[in-house]
Nucleic acid binder design. Structure first.
Lengths: 237, 237
DNA sequence: TAGTGGTCTAGACCACATG
DNA sequence: ATGTGGTCTAGACCACTAG
């Protein structure tokens, strides 16, 4: 096992695994800092750094004097922060997009999404590690601009980045829509949950300078496996 | 000036001031960790903690071996439009908040949300026009800062704005979390939908300059009645 | 009162960037 | 070769919570 990752990250990932796997449930008490120090033979500083990461990710809640517990938000397996460029790249690296289907988008799909023209469609599952899928995603892109499906499968960057680089197109604006929906039978089956169970639907439209929708992504995240997190800073009074 | 804030926060705020005031411009080199240690008579750990905060806030960029510079906002990232922070406050004003319950938050609630200290709670429905409720919302605020329930009912601004004005507190940052959930029986009944039907849960934490959670709002939006939409503009190529 | 997490110090070695 | 930030150790005192 090659593991040149920092020890605090190894520890953080190990604890994360315990939480997302369900071995530790929301409300459960975590080991104390000193216990973690002894167990993993690290200094308190290192143990704290690991706990800080999990705390920032919203997986645990800490209270002085009382201890550390698994956060009670149904602890989603993954939270995507936005507003931070590095985190977005991280998302593309950490989360595999397994394309299972591709082809030309049909008229019904395009109508439903308000697209006109010819688009290519890739659909598949998003996965992190060996866990259950985080989401079912479909990506629509302008037909002439999209890469071949083999290229998509071997991409280690996002399709958006590929299009930008390959065609020298700059995405100028992204609009994003989020809402709760009930999954249809087929969707639920693909995601290994029950029919009609809740999901977060996000639709992103990437537009270029002339307002053309270059790329559109539609994702269905089953409840409990994903939370979307964003942060707004006040810039001026 | 009473200053029982931790030293790393005092240092972070001092540096933040230098940056936001324009004394330090994007690209400018910051003092090194060791210089900061000597200048402010703190350990390296403390200086690093201050720099970590600024780094997370996106104000500085650090590179091993090269040093620390004020972040270059021309980086190819998607950013929130300036107005977005305020438009979040705006939302609270556009939609009527009918308070049906208020009182001190209990321990279970505070634990669930990761809050510590004494908070007051207001809960009720959000309505726009005479239609069915858009959402069920609960607001938690630091007890000493919150208005009386009668004032809340007569407010024509958001509670956040009232707190800012009344106590001269500036909300510095809002984090927002969105996920899909299934409604419990009681929640579903209040919103006139069926039990276990999907809803969008949004939790917003409003923080002041010292990262204290001044206000927290938790909303449940039944599927189909609400969609969250946002727009990200590329700051520069 | 005992134990927790929060803050802080004073060291150390390393990978990396720059000259 | 020097100095930077990244990681890590081994201590310490404090504020707070809970039994």
């Amino acid at each position: 096992m090659s593991d040149d990752r920092p020890r605090y990250r190894q520890l953080a990932d190990a604890l994360r695994q315990e939480i997302t796997s369900g071995a530790l449930k929301p409300g459960d008490q975590l080991k104390t800092e000193l216990e973690l120090c002894k167990l993993h033979d690290v200094s308190r500083h290192t143990a704290r750094e690991a706990l800080r990461i999990l705390s920032e990710d919203g997986l645990i809640a800490r209270r002085r004097g009382a201890g550390t517990v698994v956060a009670d938000f149904a602890a989603p397996a993954f939270a995507q922060p936005i507003g931070d460029f590095n985190s977005i790249l991280q998302y593309a690296r950490d989360v595999r997009f397994e394309v299972s289907e591709s082809g030309a988008a049909n008229k019904a799909e395009l109508d439903r999404l308000g697209l006109t023209g010819r688009y290519t469609r890739f659909s598949g599952l998003r996965r992190q590690g060996e866990t259950e899928p985080l989401a079912m995603t479909t990506i629509f892109g302008i037909a002439q601009l999209m890469p071949d499906v083999d290229i998509v499968k071997s991409l280690d960057v996002s399709i958006g980045e590929w299009v930008e680089r390959e065609h020298a197109i700059a995405m100028q604006r992204v609009t994003q829509r989020m809402e709760a929906v009930a999954l249809t039978g087929a969707q639920a089956k693909a995601l290994s949950v029950k029919t009609a169970s809740p999901a977060l639907r996000t639709v992103r439209r990437y537009r270029d300078a002339s307002d053309r929708v270059v790329l559109l992504s539609e994702s269905l995240h089953p409840a409990g496996r994903f939370a979307y997190e964003m942060r707004l800073d006040r810039t001026r009074g």
